[in-house]
Design a protein around this nucleic acid. Structure first.
Lengths: 176, 176
DNA sequence: CTTAATTCCTACTAATTCGATAGGAATTAT
DNA sequence: ATAATTCCTATCGAATTAGTAGGAATTAAG
């Protein structure tokens, strides 16, 4: 699981990517209020994001935070690594944080390692693709779908056996 | 990251899948010694695996543990869920452990959720495929490769620019 | 030049989780 | 009986998590 810190960081970054129109800095307290994040906690998180080069800040009276990179350049993988460390599920398949499993006997021929190496590759690939721009695009697509679905529901309200987009997704998930 | 508990559990299960020839139980202390796992800690882990129906045990003097299911039926996803809880990286995309992110405003239209939902699906798919049988198969394949690679190394020891299988894999990973 | 509003930074804390260990009860083969 | 095992509960220290507190530094505006 992601730590709250990482989740808050992502929420804040997406908020900034959305809200920053003219490059004007946004105050911590505004982000905290909008995204339901404890003010003081967020303060520390934004500081870390700045030190990592994703955000920049202006101090003093009209101060606040703004993106230092474009929304296409900031991805979830980097944010996760910053706060939670390796994305890999085993130290022996981590790239930036590699470490031998200390109970391990033969790393080279380890089938467990092979499995988790595949999982890590796939996960990193997906999380690198997940930039702020991509996240915003997806949420917009979801919003459109919800609207379309509500229309179709209204139009077919008295038909039985009518399956909406959302119901299809839900039942696919439940099928296990 | 996996907890040590989960990693130990997987190691022990793979060991049992390998070592159990005639269905005779294997003692905790033997597994602990072979797999470098603290004896008393392993005791608790095996107990949990038994309660979860993956292992069975015989008590008393000639007692020990053995697989209750076939190596094809025991997969890593189930073991991870047993000890570490959800595989999902966010509570709102977990299947068996679903929970709303408490700072979340609009779950249905959340782009972050969409990303982590994809990651979860892919990860679960891979971890379900990773049965004990599969792990053993993969480690055997690795062993064969290592042998083949050593032969080729020996045969071409004085050729420069010769790239072995292992070197290819390593450089692919490093390429980012 | 004072004041108000902000970021910056360090230190602290309560609660939980992790990785074990201890000790003994129950069970079983010999 | 006894030796060897699993079963089970309780405990423990260290690390991590999710914050909070307090104040220094910076800056805009009057």
């Amino acid at each position: 699981m992601l730590s709250r810190k990482t989740k808050y960081a992502i929420n804040a970054l997406v908020y900034l990517a959305r809200e920053t129109k003219d490059g004007e800095p946004v105050q911590i307290s505004r982000i905290a209020a909008s995204e339901n994040i404890p003010r003081k906690f967020l303060e520390a998180i934004l500081l870390d994001l700045r030190h990592a080069g994703m955000l920049n800040s202006r101090k003093g009276k009209t101060g606040g935070y703004y993106l230092q990179k474009s929304p296409e350049e900031i991805n979830i993988a980097d944010v996760m690594r910053l706060f939670d460390g390796p994305i890999a599920l085993l130290p022996c398949v981590a790239y930036k944080y590699y470490e031998k499993c200390d109970e391990c006997i033969d790393e080279e021929a380890c089938g467990i390692r092979a499995v988790f190496s595949d999982v890590r590759s796939e996960t990193v690939k997906m999380l690198k693709k997940a930039t702020l721009a991509e996240i915003i695009k997806r949420s917009e697509a979801l919003k459109k779908n919800i609207v379309a679905q509500k229309k179709s529901l209204k139009g077919n309200a008295n038909k039985l056996n009518n399956v909406t987009i959302k119901q299809q997704i839900t039942s696919r998930q439940k099928k296990k």
